[in-house]
Amino acid sequence: MSASDIARHHFDAALKQADATGVEREGLCRALLGLVVSQYLATRGVADVQSELHFVADNCDPDTDFMFMRP
């Protein structure tokens, strides 16, 4: 099982629990993102975490190819 598989399993379970308890999905995602950032900051510098988040934000459009992708 890969890290992505584990993350997907727990994310899906969290979404299901949020739906069942009336918690908004956006709030859940914000809380999870906060936990991820906190975990990153435990082992990485602020600038490194900011760089990681900027990369994700800059490349979140599913209709845009990454610069390093080949046609």
Rank of each mutant, 00 (worst) to 15 (best):
L15E: 13
F66W: 15
D65M: 09
F55P: 01
K16G: 04
Y40S: 01
R30L: 13
A3G: 07
S51R: 06
C60F: 06
C29P: 03
V49D: 04
F11W: 04
H54V: 13
M69H: 15
R70C: 12
P62V: 00
D58P: 10
A47H: 04
V56S: 15
R70T: 15
S51C: 09
D58N: 15
A57L: 15
F11V: 01
S2I: 05
S51H: 09
Q50W: 11
L15Y: 08
S38C: 11
H9V: 12
V36T: 02
L33N: 07
N59A: 09
F55C: 11
M67Q: 14
A13P: 00
P62M: 05
G22L: 07
H9Q: 11
V49C: 08
V49S: 03
D12W: 00
D19H: 12
A42V: 08
F55A: 13
A57Q: 13
V23A: 12
G45I: 02
E52G: 13
D5N: 11
A13H: 12
A57C: 15
A7S: 06
T21Y: 11
A13G: 06
V37Q: 00
A7V: 06
P62K: 00
H9G: 02
D5Y: 03
V49W: 00
L41S: 06
K16E: 08
G22M: 09
E26I: 09
L33F: 09
C29N: 04
D65P: 06
A20G: 11
D12F: 00
S38R: 05
A18T: 08
S51I: 06
A18H: 01
R25D: 09
T64Y: 03
D19C: 11
A42D: 11
M67G: 14
S51Y: 10
A42L: 09
D48M: 15
H10F: 00
A20V: 04
D61S: 04
T21E: 12
S51Q: 07
A7G: 06
V56K: 14
R8C: 07
V37D: 00
D61P: 02
V36E: 00
V49T: 04
N59V: 10
L41P: 01
R30S: 06
R70L: 14
L28W: 05
A47G: 09
H9F: 09
A57F: 15
Q17G: 11
D61V: 01
V46L: 08
A3L: 09
T21H: 06
D19M: 12
A14N: 02
A47N: 11
D61T: 04
D5Q: 14
D19S: 09
L15F: 05
H54L: 15
R25P: 04
R70H: 13
A14V: 08
A3R: 14
D63M: 01
A14T: 03
M69W: 15
F55V: 13
A42W: 07
L32H: 05
P71W: 10
G34I: 10
A18D: 02
S4K: 08
